[in-house]
Amino acid sequence: MRNQAEKKTSIRDLSDRELFYGHKACPGCGGSLALRLALKVLGERSYAVVPAGCMSAVGFIFPQMAFGCNAIISTFAGTASMLSGVAAGARALGIKDFHAVGFAGDGGTADIGIQALSGAIDRHDKIIYICYDNEAYMNTGVQKSGLTPIGARTTTSPVGQRLRGSVNRKKPMFEIVAAHGIDYAATASVGYPLDYLRKLEHARHVEGTSYIHVFSPCPVGWGYETADTIAVAKNAVDCGLWYLAEFSEGRFALNHNPAELTSVRDYLMGQSRFRHLQEEDINAILAQREAFWTRIHREWRV
């Protein structure tokens, strides 16, 4: 299990160096914060691999280069395989003391990139894969992904006479990667930044593959005020629709186990993508929440 003596990450210990700066992400973008904080922890000796998606679209527009460390845009499906290649190449060239870190969105991870991610985990390649989950294809204009939650309105899961937003549930990516026997996996939220920073710090030292799934709200796609990104990300955890967990050495741990969950209704109604939901929809989401927590308490023994 985790070394209990592991130093608690303090804000003051973080580097002043900004390695993701001057990017063109929308104001209040949760994904860009997730990326910026990760590079603060991982530092200058990082090779960032970023597939098609928001972060590549806003970070590398010739001649404006927002990454301060080495970075490359990968093929959409190839985040993990390009990471493996970068790590293997650097290793073969005798380059020491580096991180190969990927930043892929929810679609790039759970949909088009899942094959390559699966392969990299299987090889136990020493890479850090960060999924910044904003719950839809935001860069292309808010289309449904495999991580869009049930009921969410997107441009391809519209609200009409027959459908009330997405009918799929979020793929359980954290458990999917854990089922591979991954060396380290964690969920996080930009609403709980210290927890996220601690997990990044842990991932730095993992000899093998790390996967961090960070919940990263998107004001444009979700329909809330730009200032509320952190609050929305925190609410998602507090109301039990997102969770903070880790998987290490074959065991699950829950890092935040609220005795009482806050209102799902308030969380949903605070975002325009959910405002069409009716009583029965909210009840269905509540039932899913219940089932999820019951299951993980039982299965993870937490």
């Binding site: 900004e18 001057g22 209040g28 914060l33 004001p219 730009t226 200032a227 952190i230």
Partner: peptide, 27 residues
């Protein structure tokens, strides 16, 4: 928490905002 990293610690220990890159999100 600034998504753009535009708040900087200055040498006197205070904070300064780089208004060239602040987008005014209000976080």
């Amino acid at each position: 928490l600034c998504p753009d990293g535009v708040i900087h610690r200055n040498s006197e220990g205070g904070l300064e905002i780089d208004y060239d890159f602040c987008k005014g999100c209000g976080i």
